[in-house]
């Protein structure tokens, strides 16, 4: 029920390059998982509130007090590519 086009669309949203084999395999696997998941479509959940969190906390906030930032050498040290004190990335395609 998930077809090739949908797999490609979701892969693009996820920024994952999939090989042709992976696309085919993914379509089958996701379909069988979702088929199982679809059992919840039969439940009557009309007036049920969604739960996004089980903790019953509110307003957990932090005072506006500066803390030392990180030395720049350490910030940049693990980066794959840097230049001029910044992280260097391939340019986004025009306007994307």
């Amino acid at each position: 029920m998930i077809d090739r086009e949908q797999v490609l669309h979701v892969a693009r949203l996820s920024r994952l390059r999939l090989s042709e084999d992976e696309v085919a395999k993914m379509a089958g696997e996701l379909s069988s998982i979702l088929e199982h998941v679809d059992r919840i479509a039969e439940l009557d959940l009309g007036d049920v509130q969604p739960t996004s969190h089980v903790v019953e906390l509110e307003n957990v906030l932090r005072p506006d007090e500066p803390r030392p930032s990180w030395p720049r050498e350490r910030v940049l040290e693990p980066a794959p590519e840097t230049a001029d004190g910044a992280f260097r990335v391939p340019s986004p395609q025009a306007d994307s």
Binding site: G85, F87, R88, V89, S91, A94
Partner: peptide
């Protein structure tokens, strides 16, 4: 954006400052 001279638009690199 730090475009590289002689390249078409969109090529080159960008620098990120957080």
């Amino acid at each position: 954006h730090v475009g590289e001279s002689g390249r078409i638009h969109g090529s080159g690199a960008s620098l990120v400052d957080f």
